[in-house]
Simulated assay, not measured.
Amino acid sequence: MKIIACGSVPTVIAPEKYFTGRVLQTPIIEKEPPARLRATLVSFEPGARTHWHTHPLGQTLYVTAGAGLVQTWDGPIQEIRAGDVISFAPGEKHWHGAAPKSAMTHIAMQEALDGVHADWLETVSAEQYGG
């Protein structure tokens, strides 16, 4: 058993090369091989969002607070709210983030394939974000 004490893992500002706007990330768990799980608490300020990306083994989001937006490459923008669970299939190109006037926090959970949790792609343009 391992207990990770509250406050012992620092919150970091998410890198601009993967996000637009101010986003904070607090690691929850990253299991060592042979396990593959990574979970992170991600807080988006209004208008902040990820870039387009995929996950080799898929991703699940659990929205813990606020309201946000999510979109797959070939789908419409959809609203998400606290309590919603969003599941992306392996390799499904998508983005997610806060709504324009509301912050949003979610827990992002994904597994690694050969050490890779995500493949980051292009920025979500203002036009794409605005619908």
Rank of each mutant, 00 (worst) to 15 (best):
I13Y: 04
I13M: 10
A14E: 12
P15T: 05
E16W: 07
E16T: 15
K17N: 12
K17V: 12
T20F: 00
T20Q: 03
T20P: 01
T20S: 08
R22L: 11
V23D: 00
V23N: 00
L24S: 09
Q25L: 15
T26S: 04
P27D: 02
I28T: 03
I29T: 10
E30K: 13
E30R: 14
P33A: 10
P33L: 12
P34T: 06
A35I: 05
R36I: 11
R36P: 00
R36D: 05
L37I: 14
A39V: 15
T40R: 04
T40D: 05
T40V: 15
T40Y: 09
L41F: 15
L41Q: 14
S43W: 13
S43G: 12
S43T: 15
F44I: 06
E45A: 13
E45Q: 14
P46E: 06
G47S: 05
A48H: 02
A48C: 04
R49S: 10
T50V: 05
T50C: 09
H51E: 07
H51Q: 08
T54M: 05
T54R: 12
T54K: 06
T54N: 08
T54P: 07
H55T: 03
P56I: 07
L57N: 00
L57P: 00
G58N: 10
Q59A: 04
T60A: 01
T60F: 02
L61D: 00
L61E: 01
Y62H: 14
V63R: 03
T64V: 13
A65Q: 15
A65T: 13
G66D: 11
G66L: 11
A67D: 09
A67M: 08
A67C: 06
A67T: 14
G68V: 05
G68M: 03
V70I: 15
V70C: 13
Q71R: 14
Q71M: 13
Q71T: 05
Q71V: 09
T72F: 04
D74K: 07
G75C: 08
G75F: 07
G75T: 07
P76M: 11
I77M: 04
E79V: 02
R81H: 13
R81W: 08
R81S: 11
A82K: 08
D84T: 01
D84R: 01
V85T: 15
I86C: 02
I86E: 01
I86Y: 01
I86P: 02
S87D: 03
S87G: 02
S87A: 03
A89G: 11
A89N: 11
P90A: 09
P90H: 05
G91K: 01
E92K: 05
E92I: 04
K93Y: 10
K93C: 10
H94E: 15
H96G: 02
H96D: 00
A98H: 05
A98D: 04
K101R: 15
K101I: 14
K101Q: 15
S102Y: 08
S102Q: 13
A103D: 09
M104K: 10
M104D: 08
T105E: 06
H106D: 04
I107A: 08
I107N: 03
M109G: 02
Q110K: 14
E111I: 07
L113V: 11
L113W: 11
L113H: 10
D114L: 06
